[in-house]
Amino acid sequence: MKFTEEHEWLDEEDGVVTVGITEHAAEQLGDIVFVELPEVGAEVSKDDEIVVIESVKAASDILAPLDGEIVEVNEALVDEPSKINEDPMGAAWFFKMKPADTSQMDDYMDEAAYKAFID
């Protein structure tokens, strides 16, 4: 699993990368009340703002961590945004994407580096 400085996690399996936000991010955001997800099939570029989440405090954007195509989104979050606070690293993944170039993942932190980053 890889981590971005934007507090996203990326989990690659068979050429598909699942993306969510970290427990640290969910905790910092507070109770999440709204999620807007990208369209399946959308071609996105790294750093595009593709997800909007709103907590009781404020709105935040989630950036595409890689170039590629969105292949699946977690629609359950739209009806139950609070899942993100409950299980951000598991059931509350945001989207799955097929990256154009998986080597873009190499730029991101491993778990130990991310832990050091948030301390």
Binding site: G30, V33, K57, S82
Partner: peptide
């Protein structure tokens, strides 16, 4: 204090 341990919603 903006919130305590329960969080804003609770």
């Amino acid at each position: 204090p903006v919130q305590f341990s329960l969080g804003v919603m609770k």
